[in-house]
Amino acid sequence: MMQEFFYLLGQNLRQKTPATLGVLTGLLAVGFIVGGVIDELFWTGPFVLVVSILVTFWAASRVKQLSWFFGEREQPVSDEDHSATKGKIRADSSDDTAEHASQPSIAEPVELAGALTPREAPVGTSVVSIAPDQAVVRVNSVIHFWCWFAPLALGAGAFLATPLGALIGYQLYKQSVPWHQFEAEAAFYASFWGGTLVFGLFIAAAIWSYFANRPKVKVLITPDAIRYGDILFDRRHAAGLRIGYKSHAAELKANITDDRFGVSRLRLAYGNWGEDLKYMVNSYHADEIVIWLNGIINNVGAPPPKQYDPNKGTKPELL
């Protein structure tokens, strides 16, 4: 049950980030406040905070408005409802027997109460718009090579550049005061803050590069072209996407409880030999993503279905 909750939490953090963070912060705040009040009144110790938070989450899971956060709970069916449903089915079937005796039965899809709603798109993708003449989707990706090299290089550069920043801070202070007003303590602080500033800038750049190289790539598909990220392809030479090699240089987890599956590079069958894209997707869902994208590519710009298909129907035999 906890695994299902954390899986749903990861999904909500990606799809409904502000609302999920708000609910999570609110529940934790209520748990801490209630636990703090109990501790002040009865001197129970800090352990009561854990219990209070768990009870708060349990109580909130019973609130109907938060069903999207905790997941839908299965509603038990009583014996009376079950008997009434069976009686209604029997009555309806007996009334409709004569009416539908000479007609073929057509099964109508019925939504099962409490059942999981099918996904609109594979894990790691989202639909912006789909129309017969244009489709726009987004795919969670990492950029080949730079997804690991840029953060690593900037992180290492932070330690290498810190002494340089300290030296610059020292020199700036030394040149800003006359030699007889020079103070060792002030020079030390100037060096310290100079090195700290450079270190912070490099770390901030490393964090930025980590997320910048994990974009939600926009894929634009029209009858004439495919624009995958910043690369434009002519559809006259394109024959669909393929899965390339697999790498463990990066990870694209669907949620915080996922295992490490690595990433797979995407290829586009283009011309005689094809082209490697610089984007890589989660290896575990790569086949679903490729099948889904190829289906959208085939449907955009496809001719409308014929009113009469000569390849379908009954062909009379002449004896």
Results as ranks from 00 to 15, higher is better:
residue 137 V to N: 05
residue 173 Y to I: 02
residue 39 D to L: 07
residue 172 L to W: 15
residue 235 R to V: 13
residue 307 Q to I: 08
residue 275 E to I: 12
residue 303 P to V: 12
residue 48 V to Q: 03
residue 244 G to R: 05
residue 277 L to I: 07
residue 299 N to T: 11
residue 134 Q to T: 11
residue 11 Q to L: 09
residue 191 S to Q: 11
residue 116 L to N: 09
residue 81 D to E: 14
residue 313 G to K: 09
residue 56 T to K: 03
residue 20 T to D: 08
residue 25 T to V: 10
residue 1 M to D: 06
residue 268 L to V: 04
residue 134 Q to W: 02
residue 161 A to Q: 02
residue 262 G to W: 04
residue 237 H to L: 10
residue 95 D to P: 05
residue 15 Q to N: 12
residue 285 H to W: 13
residue 289 I to Y: 01
residue 12 N to C: 04
residue 20 T to A: 12
residue 183 E to F: 09
residue 41 L to I: 12
residue 70 F to T: 06
residue 74 E to V: 12
residue 55 V to E: 06
residue 315 K to S: 11
residue 185 E to R: 15
residue 167 L to H: 09
residue 61 S to T: 07
residue 154 L to R: 07
residue 218 K to Q: 01
residue 111 E to W: 14
residue 38 I to A: 15
residue 185 E to H: 15
residue 173 Y to E: 01
residue 286 A to L: 00
residue 300 V to C: 03
residue 196 T to V: 14
residue 108 E to H: 11
residue 197 L to D: 04
residue 289 I to G: 01
residue 212 A to M: 06
residue 108 E to P: 00
residue 252 L to I: 15
residue 290 V to R: 02
residue 176 S to T: 13
residue 287 D to S: 11
residue 310 P to W: 03
residue 75 Q to E: 14
residue 154 L to N: 08
residue 43 W to H: 15
residue 117 T to D: 10
residue 126 S to V: 04
residue 105 S to Y: 09
residue 92 D to T: 08
residue 114 G to N: 14
residue 167 L to K: 11
residue 277 L to G: 01
residue 312 K to G: 09
residue 269 A to K: 14
residue 118 P to T: 10
residue 289 I to Q: 06
residue 238 A to S: 14
residue 38 I to K: 09
residue 157 G to Y: 01
residue 151 P to L: 05
residue 80 E to H: 05
residue 239 A to K: 11
residue 182 F to A: 05
residue 56 T to D: 00
residue 80 E to Q: 13
residue 40 E to S: 09
residue 59 A to V: 13
residue 138 R to G: 02
residue 234 D to I: 03
residue 302 A to Q: 03
residue 302 A to C: 00
residue 139 V to L: 07
residue 183 E to D: 09
residue 90 R to N: 13
residue 210 Y to S: 08
residue 266 L to T: 03
residue 93 S to P: 00
residue 30 V to W: 07
residue 248 H to C: 03
residue 300 V to L: 06
residue 233 F to H: 10
residue 316 P to E: 12
residue 259 D to S: 10
residue 19 A to Q: 13
residue 97 T to C: 00
residue 165 G to I: 02
residue 92 D to W: 15
residue 157 G to V: 01
residue 86 K to V: 14
residue 58 W to C: 03
residue 254 A to N: 12
residue 157 G to W: 00
residue 100 H to P: 00
residue 294 N to T: 06
residue 270 Y to D: 03
residue 199 F to I: 08
residue 71 G to M: 06
residue 167 L to M: 15
residue 91 A to S: 09
residue 257 T to P: 00
residue 207 I to F: 06
residue 215 P to Q: 02
residue 172 L to Q: 15
residue 183 E to L: 08
residue 278 K to E: 13
residue 122 P to Y: 08
residue 222 T to Q: 01
residue 155 G to P: 00
residue 236 R to V: 05
residue 161 A to Y: 04
residue 13 L to H: 07
residue 171 Q to C: 08
residue 117 T to A: 13
residue 199 F to P: 07
residue 3 Q to L: 13
residue 28 L to C: 15
residue 223 P to R: 03
residue 305 P to C: 02
residue 47 F to C: 08
residue 319 L to S: 11
residue 42 F to L: 14
residue 139 V to K: 00
residue 278 K to A: 12
residue 115 A to V: 04
residue 75 Q to F: 03
residue 122 P to C: 02
residue 187 A to Q: 09
